[in-house]
Computed example of a mutant assay.
Amino acid sequence: MSEIRTPVVFIHGLWLHATSWQPWSDLFAAQGYDPIAPGWPGEPPTVAAARSNPDAVAGVGIDDVVAHYAKIVDELPVPPVLIGHSFGGLIVQRLLADHQGAAGVAIDPAQIKGVKPLPFAQLRSAFPVLGNPANRKRAVSLTEKQFRYGFGNALPAAESDVLHERWTIPSPGRPLFEAALANFAKHSPAAVDTAATGRGPLLLISGQQDHTVPDVVTRAAYKLYGDATSVTELKQFPDRGHSLTVDAGWRGVADHVLGWLNSQGLTGQSS
């Protein structure tokens, strides 16, 4: 049987465009993987186009995003490695629990149903959206100041501002409302079957200075997997914030992910 390159699907979260994964894609391709970084449903192909047409993603919810990426995964030749950041990390967990990936990496993942800690920093980071109920049906942008608090708090201000200008786009408010109300909804789209049997290995990653998804939130999600029979691991990066996939230290996170995948028997080649 001929060998094919193992696919990797990168899934971004709110406020970062899909092209923000380009350095990761280049690194994984050099390691023999076959990476793709599709945008969310309706997301324009460039940062500029996304900023000029915010209504393209207005009203998109978690279930819409899961279905979008599930279709992409179904069309791949073999089950991919799934790597997601923020809400992308929640999407990874949903897909992996449905056996739609060979392995999953959820970096600073948005809170899933059952996570109870609600730190002040997280509330403040989400306030630009949750502060106005009408934002449930809108796309919302972050100002430099809001991005600095939610993403770039562990960075020099100048670096945070550069990242804001380079990668940020308007994002739908609906997923934040769905996650915020998850513990009060019987059938929440933020629910993940943490006890799913036979799924691929999962790595949760936390930046311990993260304001948007504080470390305590990721640790609480990890504890929900306590009865899981499949591999579930947690890696914490001290002094890193929510920008850890796009800031100057991204390579250290990516190298850890590559090493972890190798420890799980996953490489760039799949027979």
Rank of each mutant, 00 (worst) to 15 (best):
Thr6Phe: 10
Val8His: 01
Val8Gln: 06
Val9Trp: 08
Val9Leu: 13
His12Thr: 15
Leu16His: 12
Leu16Met: 13
Thr19Arg: 02
Trp21Lys: 05
Pro23Ala: 02
Pro23Phe: 01
Ser25Thr: 01
Asp26Gln: 09
Phe28Ile: 08
Ala29Arg: 13
Ala29Pro: 04
Ala30Asn: 11
Gly32Gln: 01
Pro35Ser: 04
Ala37Phe: 09
Ala37Thr: 04
Gly39Thr: 06
Trp40Tyr: 14
Trp40Gly: 10
Arg51Cys: 02
Asp55Phe: 06
Ala58Asn: 00
Gly59Tyr: 14
Ile62Ala: 01
Asp63Pro: 09
Asp63His: 12
Asp64Ala: 02
His68Pro: 11
His68Asp: 03
Lys71Tyr: 00
Glu75Arg: 15
Val78Pro: 03
Gly84Lys: 00
Gly88Trp: 04
Gly89Gln: 01
Ile91Pro: 06
Gln93Ala: 06
Gln93Ser: 12
Asp98Met: 09
Gly101Val: 07
Gly101Pro: 11
Ala102Gly: 03
Gly114Ile: 03
Lys116Met: 07
Phe120Pro: 08
Ala121Cys: 08
Ser125Tyr: 11
Phe127Pro: 05
Asn132Val: 09
Asn132Glu: 09
Pro133Tyr: 14
Arg136Ser: 08
Arg138His: 11
Val140Cys: 07
Leu142Pro: 08
Gln146Ala: 13
Phe147Ile: 03
Phe147Asp: 00
Gly150His: 02
Gly150Cys: 09
Ala157Val: 05
Ala158Ile: 14
Glu159Lys: 01
Ser160Asn: 01
Asp161Ser: 14
His164Cys: 02
His164Asn: 03
Ser171Lys: 06
Gly173Asn: 05
Arg174His: 09
Arg174Cys: 06
Glu178Val: 12
Ala180Ser: 15
Leu181Arg: 14
Phe184Ile: 08
Ala190Gln: 04
Ala196Lys: 06
Gly198Asn: 12
Gly198Gln: 12
Arg199Tyr: 13
Pro201Gln: 03
Leu203Gln: 10
Leu204Tyr: 04
Ile205Ala: 08
Gly207Met: 06
Gln209Glu: 12
His211Arg: 14
Thr212Gly: 06
Val213Ala: 13
Asp215Cys: 15
Val216Ala: 14
Val217Ala: 14
Tyr222Asp: 14
Gly226Met: 11
Asp227Met: 09
Ala228Gly: 09
Ser230Lys: 07
Val231Phe: 03
Val231Arg: 03
Val231Asp: 14
Val231Thr: 14
Thr232His: 13
Lys235Ser: 14
Phe237His: 13
Pro238Met: 10
Asp239Pro: 01
Arg240His: 03
Gly241Gln: 08
His242Cys: 03
Leu244Trp: 09
Thr245Arg: 04
Thr245Glu: 02
Thr245Cys: 15
Val246Cys: 02
Asp247Asn: 01
Gly249Leu: 06
Gly252Leu: 02
Val253Glu: 10
Ala254Tyr: 10
Asp255Glu: 15
His256Ser: 03
Leu258Gln: 10
Trp260Leu: 07
Leu261Gln: 07
Asn262Arg: 15
Asn262Leu: 12
Gly265Met: 03
Leu266Tyr: 07
Ser270Phe: 12
